[in-house]
């Protein structure tokens, strides 16, 4: 079972339906016991960084997330804002601390071009990774005004180009983040989400 964390931010229904179509069980939840018992966890998110951290805190989820990642090494996927929350902090509407699971910062796009970065853009895989097994580079649907700059380039698994190189997928051990919405990114997105789900349940089966 994959726990989709419900903290009042984001489009949970679409990602849950995508998992259903792939044949994976899921629960939309903010219950820490269910999250702890899951094979893997998805942290979705749409909205503002500071609000999102506040909502996680209110529900006592910050410690739960840190614990399952650090202590248990449970697979976790942050999507869009959910990926940004994995980092040290963000400049969105003043400085806000993030979950600090991966060192790095979230900054606003700056320049004489359209913001948000909105639409289908090409993913470039930076390195081979189990997440990419059977997946080809393709287009994904992005919509964001802030982007992540990890401190360690080795945490970057895939990038895209939007007036600069933009971090698209990050990964560190069993912790992943996707800046685009895999559940809205056609075939490529479906395969990536499916790979994550498979990594979760492989682990579940081994237990």
């Amino acid at each position: 079972m994959i726990a989709i964390i419900d903290y009042g931010m984001g489009n949970l229904y679409s990602v849950s339906q995508a998992l259903t179509r792939m044949g994976y069980e899921w629960k939309i939840t903010s219950d820490s016991e269910i999250i702890r018992s899951a094979d893997g966890v998805i942290l979705p998110g749409v909205g503002a960084f500071g609000d999102a951290m506040l909502e996680l805190k209110k529900r006592g989820l910050i410690e739960v997330i840190k614990e399952i990642v650090h202590r248990e090494g449970k697979p976790l996927l942050g999507i869009c804002l959910g990926m940004q929350l994995l980092f040290t902090g963000s400049d969105e509407h003043g400085y806000h601390q993030g979950l600090n699971l991966i060192p790095g910062h979230v900054v606003r796009f700056e320049g004489d071009y359209n913001i948000p970065h909105m639409g289908w853009n090409e993913l470039r895989f930076d390195r081979p990774h189990p997440l990419f097994q059977g997946v080809e580079e393709g287009y994904a649907y992005f919509v964001h005004s802030f982007h992540v700059i990890p401190d360690n380039p080795s945490d970057i698994l895939a990038v895209t180009d939007y007036h600069q190189t933009v971090t698209a997928i990050v990964g560190r051990n069993q912790l992943f983040g996707m800046q685009f919405h895999p559940e809205k990114s056609g075939e490529t997105g479906r395969k990536l989400l499916e790979r994550f789900a498979a990594l979760c349940t492989d682990r579940g089966n081994r237990r």
Partner: peptide
Amino acid sequence: GVLSIPFTVGGGIGDLEDMFQILRAGAD
């Protein structure tokens, strides 16, 4: 539940509550 691309909903949306209903139902 079936689409793998984003979608927008318009027409007759008058306030934040209307928007909330539509977005919560899964519109992007």
